[in-house]
Nucleic acid binder design. Structure first.
Length: 211
DNA sequence: AAGGTCAACATGAGGT
DNA sequence: ACCTCATGTTGACCTT
């Protein structure tokens, strides 16, 4: 879908290339593109072109040109963003940057979006690594439980703190959080059932009842 | 040429 | 009704 402005407001930007500025009519977009890519105007010319363009295309179809913020403009915007993620006095910053308030507004909106995207990506990465380590830990513990269950006979080594009697190895498990051996015989069945269940990360974040 | 970046825009939700 | 913001999209420009 083509994005065309609902009105011919001042939002449209055209760039006047030095040497071609005298031309009263807009060049076709293809020829403008070549000029833009190969001949970057001076910073002053950029700013001037950002501010000046209030006139409209004579043929009624204003080509949407892309504005590139100068390094100084970006630096100032970033600095302002660091101080506050929301824009309070819109006009003053715009004036300082020689941009329109709307441009500064849009920049902040986009900047917030980028910031959020970055954070989401980092969180996703973190959760992936966490899931991997939990999976590995789960595998280890399952193996350990299998081994313990295999040793059905043999001298009991754990004494129940409640009954003060030896516990059978088959009832033993390891708390994934504190990595201490606990007995399912000492706990309600619901808690014991969590060992073999696939525990989602959000649940395993909570401290185990055994601790 | 393909893919990435980013300014600009559209739209809908929520607050006043 | 208006404003602000989040989110998704578009298109110009840039990089590889």
């Amino acid at each position: 879908m083509a994005v065309l402005p609902s009105s011919s407001s001042s939002l449209e930007l055209t760039i006047s290339v030095p040497g071609f500025a005298s031309s009263p009519t807009l060049l076709p977009s293809s020829s403008v593109k070549e000029l833009d890519i190969n001949q970057v105007p001076l910073e002053e010319d950029w700013m001037a072109s950002n501010m000046e363009d209030e006139e409209e295309s004579s043929n009624g179809e204003p080509p949407r040109k892309k504005l590139r913020l100068t390094k100084e403009q970006s630096r100032l915007l970033e600095e302002s963003f660091r101080q506050n993620h929301t824009l309070n006095p819109k006009e003053s910053l715009a004036m300082q940057l020689k941009l329109r308030p709307r441009q500064v507004e849009v920049w902040f909106q986009n900047r917030r979006a980028r910031s959020k995207l970055k954070q989401t990506e980092m969180e996703c990465e973190y959760l992936k690594r966490w899931f991997g380590s939990l999976t590995e830990q789960n595998r280890r513990l399952q193996r350990e439980v299998e081994e313990l269950r295999a040793i059905k006979v043999g001298p009991p080594t754990v004494i129940s703190p409640h009954s003060c009697e030896p516990l059978p190895a088959s009832t033993l498990s390891m708390c994934p959080r504190c990595e201490r051996v606990t007995s399912t015989a000492d706990k309600p069945p619901s808690a014991a059932a969590t060992l073999s269940a696939k525990v989602p990360p959000t649940q395993s974040r909570q401290p185990s009842a055994a601790c």
